[in-house]
Design a protein around this nucleic acid. Structure first.
Lengths: 264, 264
DNA sequence: ATACTAATTAAACAGCCGGCCGATTAATTG
DNA sequence: CAATTAATCGGCCGGCTGTTTAATTAGTAT
């Protein structure tokens, strides 16, 4: 009985090239060139109804979001290579061709799944940082750490949000061709902003040390928020990884102390 | 031009069942039931030559290890689902059938790739902990942290070791059917030992808090050691993620301070 | 109605997947 | 030498992959 997981990778077809074909060359989903500029999406986004005209109006179907929701679960559980568009289509109760119609390619779908919530977290972070700055004096390290972590933590309040956090943890371990562009697009600006703010709050540290501690904080929260750790396995009943208060206290005290440690 | 990555997942064939078939039922590579008990491996391990007998002697080929080395790279770069036995075979310059001959199945191969170095790290950790205990008084938190991190750090001194650390970071995000059993088998005993030692060294913390801080430490080091972080991208030239001294100082100071933080 | 466009479908395509088999070669013993 | 066992090979199988195409349906404006 032949069974198991499979994957394919073309030898002479670099993944980078495959990526490129994602956002370009989508004949089935042509870019609306004369569309309103604020909706730079690729197709059928449920934006406000287009200016009238003959033909069926665009954006009246909610199938697009149902595909994104189903894909989020599949990608989070099985990774990029492990996910098949057939399973996504089945879970979203649509035909497989619809996915290519809306997203052009598998990578195009992955891109939108990740960016829709990734951008949301990044925006939330920057907004909290801005509020911190508006309230006068330079913010304390603990406040900066909280502003960085809270958006991801509140995302965990819904099942879909928790799924996304698992997807995000996975993304960081995917091959560079898949992951680099996406996490840069989502997080580069906000992470750079936090690093600078942290530098000002930790003047006794070198630039290098601040970068390292940012990295360690990111690794810690990705793992702690991803539900992939072995905590409940090792300490069943003792730890409740779904209690946001518990998580917040545990991680902020640890990370803040780490940030404030004397220069190594 | 059809191209891209593919994967398959049977609908009514749970992965867990697929796993099971890995270590059992290998007809081509039968378990040597009357073999010396210390070599509990599945086949052809280059153990000491077997007691004489007719036929070609076992374990004179080093192909087995070449397959493991090639598979380690593929699994680390592309994940479990993303890796194909064909590519592994090509990289190891053997036929695909040989992989099944030696390892029974794709999962059997993955299992051995992970455990051979995972166990090594776990053993190294416990040995260092034992030495710490032998040297009299209860060990300090900083010493415990170092004993936990050093084995993984020194593994990074070779290219293959760095590859394994990436594989390990990936393993933690793989689906439970693939990952749980393996990381438990490799790390459960040593992690439990470290947690207990840490409890004694941090009497002001509750059991729950110690578990959380272990989790945060693990997340931080997995990410920092995996070469998947964006450090050199964000700070090109400033940070050298390959300098073990730099890494050691950065992570031990951060983690030790986090461990010693007041109870949340 | 009819023209027009978006949304959706079924079917097919070309290609890679893991597992398995029979046959062959290599190395040893008696 | 023959017998025996390990190691290795080439090739096939059913099945799943992402993508494409041609055709159809749904909804709106004239």
């Amino acid at each position: 009985m032949p069974k198991d997981d499979i994957r394919v990778r073309d030898k002479d077809d670099s993944s980078a090239e495959a990526m490129k074909s994602a956002s370009s060359q989508s004949k089935a989903a042509p870019e609306p060139e004369a569309a309103p500029p604020e909706s730079a999406g690729k197709r059928g986004r449920p934006t406000q109804r287009r200016r009238a005209g003959p033909g069926r109006p665009e954006g009246v179907s909610n199938v697009r979001d149902e595909i994104l929701d189903a894909a989020e679960i599949e990608f989070a559980n099985l990774g990029y290579a492990g996910t098949s568009l057939r399973n996504v289509a089945e879970a979203a109760q649509v035909t497989q061709a619809l996915i290519n119609y809306y997203f052009g390619s598998k990578y195009g779908l992955f891109e939108e799944v990740f960016l829709r919530r990734g951008r949301q977290i990044a925006d939330d972070r920057m907004q909290r940082l801005e509020e911190l700055r508006r309230s006068g004096k330079p913010p304390a390290v603990a406040d900066i750490v909280r502003a960085f972590l809270m958006p991801a933590l509140s995302m965990r309040s819904t099942a879909a949000g928790r799924t996304f956090m698992r997807l995000q943890a996975r993304l960081h371990t995917e091959p560079p061709e898949i992951s680099y562009k996406l996490r840069n697009e989502a997080y580069e600006t906000s992470t750079r902003l936090f690093t600078e703010t942290l530098r000002d709050a930790l003047p006794h540290l070198s630039e290098k040390d601040v970068y390292w501690r940012m990295t360690l904080m990111i690794g810690a929260y990705l793992y702690a928020f991803s539900d992939t750790h072995r905590l409940e396995e090792m300490a069943p009943g003792i730890v409740n990884p779904d209690d946001p208060e518990e998580i917040l206290k545990a991680i902020t005290s640890f990370v803040t102390a780490g940030m404030l440690a004397p220069a190594p």
